[in-house]
Structures are given as structure tokens and as C-alpha cells.
Design a protein around this nucleic acid. Structure first.
Length: 337
DNA sequence: CGGGTTTGACCGGCGC
DNA sequence: GCGCCGGTCAAACCCG
């Protein structure tokens, strides 16, 4: 696979051997595709930034409202009219005011259904054409748990027919069906399932939380992930894995590498360590090391984490250094047999 | 028959 | 007060 590289001072490491392409037409074709892809990614990023800004504004407003409420407690309108209060009003009062998230899902532009698979069960309760977008907006409630307050709206993106925008409201009060299935089927992989985070969290949000607050790095990574999500069929049998690392305290040393599978990612980390050993011992013909040396190498990195693509929810799940250590142990153990 | 979807009606908020 | 708009309801409908 060709590593993703957009000009944001980030240099992805090469993960595969690339033989020089001799066919000029193919080069032109690739660069044209690359240009189109980058154009789409830029659009996606502008959505993300727009969301971030609106969320930030919303959050600030909530904080401000809370402060005002605490400083001068007012009697809520809800208390004023009790009997005549409609059920709709009461429900609205109970609605969560926080936890609004937006997810962008790349789909087939010809697919007219407004379905975003995210591991939860939803019941559609309405559809509406809105003024700002010719595509209808579908309204869903979570039907997995009887009292789950979560709602979502799904609408085709105005700028890109191939993108669905899902807006989530509220927090699930239960686990997703995907998580339940994962727990039942893979009891021996408790380590893995225990690290599964709430499935409705969007991948860009995951990135933003998982990494430190470097907007350039986060944007770059989000762009790379979006491009991978659109190629989901390609990875049906493997879990596309992105290794994020920062080799030193210098932020400029941040980089990422992407692999077709978890085991390839483990091989990639080994290769990185072996390259380092080779640089340190250029005259030595054979270099041997044990797993503890490898662990020391991983621990010596300023930051190390992995994002693993889950096809069932079309999202990347973050994993920490400890998870990588465990996977590395199992990977090397398997190789030894 | 039960559960999910469709769709027109209805409601509350908001701007003018 | 009125009209527009987004969100929700609920009856009718569909499907396995």
C-alpha cells in the first residue's frame, strides 16, 4: 500500500517495498487520483473543523449557562405549568443537552438508503426534507435498550453525495450489540474486547482524544483514516492498523505507519527496532534481540499507540502501549511455533 | 402477528 | 400574530 502523505510536516514511514513505476500513464493516473482524493479529504476536514468549532461554541455556551444558573437560580418554566404541560414538552425537558457528535460515513453515492451501521439498533421515527439540503433527513431512536435516550439524525452531505452525516445526541445506557457479540464469541480475547470503547464515538473524535492537541497531526491522521474507510472492502479479511508513534519529546518526531493487518503492524514495529539496532551496530553481521529488548524499545518511545479498524462498526478503535505489548507477545509466540 | 418504516399531521421555537 | 422550519407523533402500511 502507498503510505498516505499530505504536506503537513508529517512523514509517514514506508511500510512496504515500493518498486519504481515505469509506466508514465499509470503515474499520471495515480497522481490524478491522488489529487481527487486529497480534494475530498480537504472537504472532509473542513466538515470536521466546522463541527469542532460549533461544538466548542456549544460547550462554551453550556458552561456559561451553567454558571449563570448557579449564580442566580431561576425557577424553571417546566415547574410553572404542570397539568397543561404536554408530554412532548416533558420529554424535551428530559433530553440530554450534551454529547452531540457527528459522524461522516463514506457510502456508495448510488445507495439512497440513509443507513449508518454503528453497532447499535435503531428505529426510524421520522423523515423530513430540510431547507438547506435536498436530501431528506432521517430520524432514529436507539431501540436496543428500552429506555436508551440516544437519538440520531442521518442525512446525505450537501457537498458530497458519497458521504452520510450522522448526528448523535445523548449517551447510550447500555453496550452495543457488536460489543455483546464480541464478548460472547471471543472470550479468549478479553484483553481486546475490554479495550473496545463506546462504539458511537466517531473516529476523528477518537483521534482527537487519543492524541495530544496538535491540530495538524490530528487533521493529517483523520485524512488518512477517511481514505482508508472508503477502501473498506479491500480490508475485509484483515484489520487495517495504524501505528502512531512519537520517538522523542520533540513533537516533530511524531509519525504514523499503516498496515494491512495487526500482525503486519507488529512486524513493522520489529522492523523499525531492527533498523535502529542496525544503525547502532553497523559493523555487526548478525543482530539478535529478545522480547524484553523490544519492550524496552517500545517503552523508550515518547508515545506509542495503535488504531485498529473494525469492519462491523466502520470505525477505528484505539489501543494503548500495553495492548501493543500484548499483541506483540502473542505475535512473536505464534512465529516461534 | 409483531416489529420496523413511511408519511402526513401536528407542535413548539423563532424571526419578522 | 403569523408563517416558516425542524422535530416528533401516530396511523397506515410493509415484511418476514
Amino acid at each position: 500500500m502507498v503510505p498516505t502523505c499530505i504536506d503537513l510536516n508529517l512523514i509517514p514511514l514506508s511500510t512496504t517495498d515500493h518498486t519504481p513505476v515505469e509506466d508514465d500513464d499509470m503515474v499520471c493516473d495515480l497522481s490524478r487520483k491522488g489529487y481527487n482524493e486529497n480534494k475530498k479529504l480537504k472537504e472532509m476536514l473542513s466538515f470536521v473543523l466546522e463541527d469542532y468549532n460549533s461544538l466548542k461554541t456549544h460547550f462554551n455556551k453550556l458552561v456559561q449557562d451553567k454558571e449563570e444558573l448557579e449564580s442566580s437560580p431561576k425557577k424553571r418554566k417546566f415547574d410553572d405549568d404542570t397539568v397543561q404541560q404536554s408530554s412532548w414538552k416533558r420529554r424535551k425537558e428530559e433530553l440530554p443537552t450534551s454529547g452531540i457528535r457527528r459522524v461522516y460515513v463514506r457510502i456508495d453515492p448510488l445507495d439512497k438508503s440513509l443507513v449508518v451501521r454503528d453497532g447499535y439498533q435503531w428505529r426510524k421515527y421520522g423523515q423530513k426534507v430540510t431547507r438547506d439540503n435536498p436530501s431528506p433527513r432521517a430520524y432514529y431512536r436507539c431501540s436496543f435498550a428500552p429506555l436508551c435516550p440516544v437519538k440520531k439524525k442521518v442525512q446525505r452531505s450537501m457537498d458530497d453525495d458519497g458521504v452520510l452525516v450522522a448526528t448523535y445526541e445523548g449517551e447510550h445506557n447500555h453496550r452495543s450489540s457488536t460489543q455483546e457479540a464480541a464478548n460472547a464469541s471471543f472470550a479468549d480475547e478479553q484483553q481486546e474486547s475490554s479495550s473496545i470503547i463506546k462504539l458511537d464515538e466517531v473516529l476523528v473524535e477518537q483521534m482527537a482524544k487519543y492524541l495530544c492537541k496538535d491540530p495538524n497531526f490530528t487533521s493529517e491522521l483523520a485524512a488518512a483514516i477517511f481514505s482508508k474507510v472508503s477502501e473498506v472492502d479491500f480490508f475485509k479479511s484483515n484489520k487495517h492498523t495504524i501505528i502512531l508513534m512519537q520517538t522523542s519529546q520533540n513533537r516533530a518526531s511524531r509519525t504514523f505507519m499503516d498496515y494491512e493487518s495487526i500482525s503486519q503492524a507488529m512486524d513493522g514495529i520489529c522492523a523499525l527496532y531492527e533498523r535502529k539496532l542496525k544503525n547502532l551496530n553497523p559493523v555487526m553481521r548478525n543482530i539478535t534481540y529478545d522480547i524484553q529488548d523490544l519492550y524496552n524499545f517500545m517503552d523508550g518511545l515518547a508515545d506509542l499507540s495503535a488504531l485498529v479498524y473494525d469492519h462491523s462498526i466502520q470505525a477505528y478503535l484505539p489501543n494503548d502501549r500495553e495492548w501493543i505489548r500484548n499483541r506483540m507477545f502473542h505475535h512473536l509466540k505464534k512465529l516461534a511455533h
